[in-house]
Amino acid sequence: MESLLQNFDLVIVLVLAILGYTVGSLAEKRHYRSIIKREKELLKMAVVTAEGSFPPGKVGSSALVSGSVVISIDYFKRLLAILRNIFGGRVKSYESLVDRARREAILRMKESARKQGANMIINMRLETATIGRSANKRKSVGSVEAIAYGTAIVMNKG
C-alpha cells in the first residue's frame, strides 16, 4: 500500500491509461456505428467537390451549409502519441480521431442541407484545426476540429 502511495503519479498514469483505453474505444466504436448508419441514410444527398455548372433556370436557390465537430483525444491515445514522438512514424492512434471528425463534419453539413430541402451540395471543402495546440506537451489536452462547408443547391421541380 505504501509503495502505491509512493509511486502515486505512476498509478495515476496507469489508471488514466486504462480508463482512456476502455472508455475511449467504447466511445469510438459507438461513434463509428452512428457514422455508418447516418451515412447510409444520407447516401442520396450528393456531395461533390466540383464547382458545378447548371443550365439556366435549373437552380431554385442556393445557400452556404456547414458542419463542424470537435473531438478530443483520450489519455491512452495521447500516451501512444507521446511514445510515437520518441521513435517517429505514423501516429496511428490519432488517425481514427481525424477520420471520425471529418466524416462527422460532412454528415452534419449534409443534415443541415437536408433541413433546407437541398438536393445536393457542390463545392464542398474540408478543413481541420487543432484546439489546445501542442497536445503532447505536459498538462495539456488536445482536440481536433473539422469543419466541412459547401453550397447547398435546391433544384427547381420539373
Binding site: 500516451l79 501512444l80 511514445l83 496511428k92 481525424v98
Partner: peptide, 11 residues
C-alpha cells in the same frame, strides 16, 4: 484512412 493494427500491440 485508419490503420488496422491493434492499439495495444502498438503500445
Amino acid at each position: 484512412n485508419v490503420s488496422k493494427s491493434h492499439p495495444l500491440i502498438e503500445l
